[in-house]
Structure formats: C-alpha cells, structure tokens
C-alpha cells in the first residue's frame, strides 16, 4: 500500500508564557485509501496533528510528508497550492460562505485550482447528486439544515479529488442521527478509495466508522488500533481505554 501521510518524530510546542506541548515526538504513517480516526480528549493534540497535516501550522521539529510532498520547506503560497490541489477539509462548524450559493461554495476550491468552469460545474453537480442534495444547488447556506450544510462542506472538500480528506469533528455540531448520516457518507466516500483522516473525541464513533483509530493523550500516541474483525479489538475495548485514561 502507498503511504499517503507520513509523520516522522514530529513535535509541536506552542510558545507562550509557559510553553505548551501540542505534540511530542509523534511518528505516524497513514496508507492510501485508509479511513483513520484521530481520537483523544480536549488538549490531546488531535487538532494540532490535523493542522500539521493540512499545512496550516508548522512542526517545531520532525517532518510531515503528504502524498510525497514534504511540507517543511514550503512557503505560504506553496502551502496554499498544496491545500487546494491535494487536500479537502471538512470543519466542525462547516464554514460555508453565507453569501455564496451551495453550488458556488462547492465550486470555490475548483476555481482556486484553475479548473475549467464546465468541468468544475459538472463535477460539483455530480457530487451534489452523490450526496443527495442536488436540489439544493441554488440555495444559500442559511436556509439549510446542519446535515445539509455538512454535506455541502464534504462536496466542497471533494471537488478537486484530493489525495487526503481531513475532517475535524465533522459531527460535532450535529445531532446524533444526522451525525451518523454524515459519517455513513464518509464511509461511502472511503470505499471509493479516498484517504480520510477524521479527528473526533467520540470513541464510539471512531470505532464504528474508522478502519483505524489512533488515540492521543497529552501530545503522544497512546494507542494505534486497526478496527478490523481479525484484530480482536472492539468498540468496548476502546471505551475501556478511554475510561481508564480518564480515571488517571
């Protein structure tokens, strides 16, 4: 399997009044086509990890390589190009642009990447169909439900056929039923070969939908479990791990 994402001895320390450790000597490889969940409580470093993979932040030490591209030496403009060409990002609070229609929101990354208008429109409409919101193309985000907005966000993230799809707490702002629907969509997208890295604090969700769950605590990898039937690991095992760590 090709390695899509490679973190090697990555540390991130935030300078401030007292130095805060975001990540501490983390090494991680995520192969192409895998649906990996990064799990941990608040402050564990999971968002830091996602930001480093997205090139939104730079590590204090170590290297981050995504789809063969080492992010360390890239300028801001190069990182922007990297994000628009190789990444798709889904945020917890959707972050759609309210003054653009659904279709225009989805087209935005394609236009930034220079995709031809006709091609981009066809791709966007195709995604809207796949995600079951084709009739919402002309609507504005304020008129959509939370689930519909997140679908739009997923479509926007996929329009450029990214190497990696990053999802930061994609169900955090949704009710449980809607959240499950969104995760079902991500699983379906993953079945098509899309590499997905999802950040979540919810162990149950992580185990139920991801093929691999990386648990972080205090900036370090606590556990790295493949969620395959043959591994013997289960949701209840992950829940136990969580309870034990919470009690410490």
């Amino acid at each position: 399997m090709n390695t899509r994402i490679e973190l090697t001895n990555v540390s991130k320390i935030y300078n401030g009044g007292s130095k805060q450790v975001g990540l501490s000597d983390v090494s991680l490889s995520i192969p192409s086509g895998q649906f990996a969940a990064i799990m941990g409580p608040s402050g564990s470093g999971k968002s830091t990890l996602l930001n480093l993979i997205a090139g939104l932040d730079r590590p204090t030490s170590g290297t981050v390589t995504v789809d063969g591209v080492s992010l360390g030496g890239l300028s801001e403009a190069a990182l922007a190009r990297y994000r628009r060409q190789r990444l798709g990002v889904v945020f917890q609070f959707f972050h759609l642009l309210n003054q653009l229609s659904v279709l225009d929101n989805i087209l935005l990354p394609a236009q930034l990447a220079g995709m031809k208008t006709a091609t981009a429109r066809a791709r966007a409409r195709d995604l809207l169909d796949q995600l079951g919101i084709a009739e919402k193309a002309g609507e504005y985000p304020a008129r959509l439900s939370g689930g519909e907005r997140q679908r739009v966000a997923i479509a926007r993230a996929l329009v450029n056929r990214p190497a990696v799809l990053l999802a930061d707490e994609p169900t955090g702002a949704l009710d449980s039923r809607t959240g499950e629907q969104v995760l079902d969509l991500l699983v379906e997208v993953n079945r098509g070969g899309q590499t997905i890295v999802m950040v979540t604090h919810d162990a149950k969700l992580a185990a139920a939908y991801a093929a691999r769950v990386v648990s972080l605590r205090d900036g370090r990898i606590l556990d790295d479990a493949q969620m395959q039937p043959s591994s013997g690991r289960s949701v209840s095992d992950l829940m136990q791990l969580e309870i034990k760590e919470a009690g410490k």
Binding site: A54, A77, A80, R81, R83, R84, F91
Partner: peptide
C-alpha cells in the same frame, strides 16, 4: 481563514 484553508494563497 476558511478560504485560506481551502487553498487561497496570501
């Protein structure tokens, strides 16, 4: 910030 995350350069 969203646009930058989507790939808009400085």
């Amino acid at each position: 910030a969203t646009l930058k995350a989507l790939g808009m350069s400085p």
